[in-house]
């Protein structure tokens, strides 16, 4: 299990290539990368705040749930905080399992739980000003799938 909470950028490709590379008992690796989105072409940057200590323990708890539930061979979570520019990777999740369904489902589960149970808060700085990104009811509803 690899969990990193960092302000530094990371290389999605290199991280994925090295993930679970020594395992011969897996048949599937699924990865998800979250990227700073700027659909209105007015985003200057996204500021991500977190709760040091709780962030790491919350992610670890969620990842351990995923590992036991889908019998994952390995799992990786990287999540950045600080000031990020549009197009920058915010976070990535990778799951490794014997079969693809487990790897896909576990990655989906991880994203639903990281969204509303990992203590991060996003603030968008646009030309019009700064505003905190609000959570959506759909984010909370998504947890009921699991």
């Amino acid at each position: 299990m690899i969990i990193r909470v960092q302000s530094d950028p990371f290389d999605v490709g290199a991280t994925l290539n090295s993930f679970a590379q020594d395992r011969r008992d897996i048949g599937a690796v699924v990865s998800f990368t979250g990227v700073v989105r700027d659909t209105q072409d007015d985003l200057h940057e996204m500021q991500i705040e977190h709760y040091p200590g709780m962030t790491e323990s919350a992610i670890k708890t969620i990842a351990q749930d995923a590992v036991s539930r889908w019998r994952l061979a390995d799992i990786l979570v990287i999540h950045r905080y600080g000031n990020l520019k549009p197009g920058a990777p915010i976070m990535m999740v990778a799951t490794a399992a014997a079969h693809r369904v487990a790897a896909f489902e576990a990655a989906d589960f991880m994203m639903d739980y990281l969204k509303s149970r990992a203590p991060f808060w996003k603030k968008e700085i646009t030309q019009a000003g700064a505003s905190w990104v609000a959570s959506k009811d759909a984010d909370e509803d998504a947890l009921k799938r699991w």
Binding site: Y51, I90, K115, S116, A118, P119, F120, W121, S135, D139
Partner: peptide
């Protein structure tokens, strides 16, 4: 104390 989280 904090608002609902917005990770991912």
């Amino acid at each position: 104390f904090f608002p609902p989280m917005t990770g991912g």
